[in-house]
């Protein structure tokens, strides 16, 4: 068995006074695609935020290892340098901060963390323009303020743009399919598909099987009340679609 990219062991976490994740364990190998499905409030997004290091969340117990390093002791920016990338469900708008300034700082600080030389202005622009074109965004996209006044599709594409530039090894997609029409969903999914590689793993958080149909996860976890109810292959998605969430919960609870 190859080295694990991410290993979560009995993770218990939540907000100040409320435990939301009640003992989560899962391991992701390089190149694997994992999906987490579950109802609203089951703790899916909390898991994503705790992994990314969002302030305001507290870890009560358990551990998370990424590339053999203790992820939970790192600052959010260190986690990004280490190769973790969270694509936000609702990316925040930052009026006044220019896209290209933002991307240049992000790319160069991550490069610095990884021991690479910073890109000079010319090479950076060349790289970023290439990616902007690849995503079918207009060239003045870089002159706009970060996410300010972006359409739903543009916001998600902006997340993918950052993903392309920062070249992470673990991508967490937090309901990337929400707020997109079918065409936009297809477009975004195609870009994600192109990012699949033997070195890059995905953790996809979603309500809907549609996104998973395209991305074909290796493992599907069903989350309920801060715990993983069951895990399996594609058959879990089928099961959810056919029998609904409540039935799965009943059958798991009634199992001997």
């Amino acid at each position: 068995m190859s080295k694990k990219l991410l290993e979560i062991q009995n993770l218990r976490a939540g907000t100040e006074d409320k435990e939301i994740l009640r003992g989560i364990s899962l391991a992701i190998q390089p190149g694997e695609v994992h999906a987490i499905m579950g109802q609203n409030g089951s703790g899916k997004s909390t898991l994503a935020y705790v992994l990314a290091g969002k302030p305001g969340y507290e870890v009560f117990g358990g551990s998370v290892w990424m590339n053999g390093k203790d992820l939970l002791s790192m600052e959010p920016e260190e986690r990004a340098g280490e190769g973790l990338f969270l694509a936000f469900q609702y990316p925040v708008e930052i009026p006044g901060l220019n896209m290209s300034t933002f991307l240049r700082h992000a790319v160069n600080e991550v490069r610095q963390y990884r021991g690479l030389d910073p890109l000079d202005a010319k090479n950076f622009l060349k790289l970023v323009r290439e990616k902007v074109q690849e995503l079918g965004l207009s060239s003045d996209f870089l002159k706009r303020a970060v996410n300010a006044g972006f359409s739903g599709g543009e916001k998600k594409k902006n997340e993918i743009l950052q993903l392309l530039l920062l070249e992470p090894s673990l991508v967490i997609l937090d309901e990337t399919d929400s707020g997109l029409d079918l065409d936009a969903l297809k477009q975004v999914t195609e870009h994600i598909l192109r990012l699949k590689s033997p070195e890059r793993s995905f953790l996809i958080i979603t309500h809907y099987p549609k996104l998973l149909e395209y991305l074909k996860p290796d493992v599907v976890h069903v989350m309920d009340d801060g715990q993983i109810l069951c895990s399996g292959g594609w058959e879990v998605v089928k099961d959810l679609e056919e029998h609904g969430f409540e039935n799965i919960r009943q059958s798991v609870l009634n199992a001997p």
Partner: peptide, 27 residues
């Protein structure tokens, strides 16, 4: 939320604060 967004993209906290402060007035 803005601070975390920038930090999650690898930007250090001090730089993120500086950029957001500048963005606030630059708007």
């Amino acid at each position: 939320e803005q601070l975390f967004y920038l930090r999650s993209r690898g930007i250090s906290e001090s730089r993120a604060r500086q950029e957001l402060t500048e963005a606030f007035v630059r708007e």
